[in-house]
Design a protein around this nucleic acid. Sequence first.
DNA 1: TCTGGTCAAGGTGGT
DNA 2: ACCACCTTGACCAGA
Length: 313
Amino acid sequence: MKIGYPCLNTRLGCSSARTFRLRSYSPQRLVRTVDQNLDCLERILRFNADHGLLFFRLTSDLVPFASHPVAENFDWAAHFAGRLGELGRFIRDHGLRLSMHPDQFILLNSPDPKVLRNSVAELRYHARLLDLLGLPEEAKIQIHVGGVYRDKTLSLFRFADRCLDLEEPLRRRLVIENDERSYGLKDCLMIHLVTGLPVVLDVLHHHLLNEGESLREALAVASATWSPDDGPPIVDYSRQRPGGRRGRHADSLEEAEFRAFLHDSQPYDFDLMLEIKDKERSALHALEIAAGDARLATPPGVRRPEPETPVPT
DNA sequence: TCTGGTCAAGGTGGT
DNA sequence: ACCACCTTGACCAGA
């Protein structure tokens, strides 16, 4: 089990998701912004490696407007290939796993051809980034099924069809996450049957939308959709903000709840993404709480203390 | 320097 | 038909 957090680190005083307004676009502005984003990303990755946080979600804003027509004459991939390659080496050397989660505008099942085109372009940007980092297939891009468009079954199978139309290298990185309103775990499993795509279990979403499966049952079926090349299954963990609106994420990790989760999720192993507002703080707290859990991954070169090891004299 | 309205992109659900 | 919400940070114009 690797533990991680999404996109932002709150204590380094930098952001790897800096952007700018479309009307401020220029190739120079793009290069300057991405340089800053990469500098910050490097700091975040070093922080993570130093602290045993081996899982991290890369922001979609790393290269602003990468899939937008405004930037189509600028070859961002070629421009940043060298730097991304270096970062990728660091990631691999330190046993880090990365994932991405494009936002709500990515809708593979939209009936609108333009929305589909934009979505595919944006997914290609995500895959390109992970490719330039030289990361294996286990570096995943997780998306939701999308809209219902007044006919859920039709829309679900349209999603599956569109997945099968994607080029192989992109499709191999895609994973489907259950949402809290329209497409639950069962629906994602159906898509898995048709497309082979693995399923990310989001624990909070599953809590809000389910068909009575317990956490353990849900983990069992979601885990079974992952093959060895996909890497360990990914699970998203968050909690409802107490007293907050339905689905709203909490500000911090709650120890007793998280201990209960670790207990209830036995014996399944997976990499855990903590979607909690205070980011690395909760991730570090989770690491402490999980210390001693036999599933916890250790960085390469760091050996778990052996019980009863005789001390050389 | 600070702040609040706004930002490439969509869909849902309440009024 | 319209608007707030999703989830959220960061930009940037204007004070």
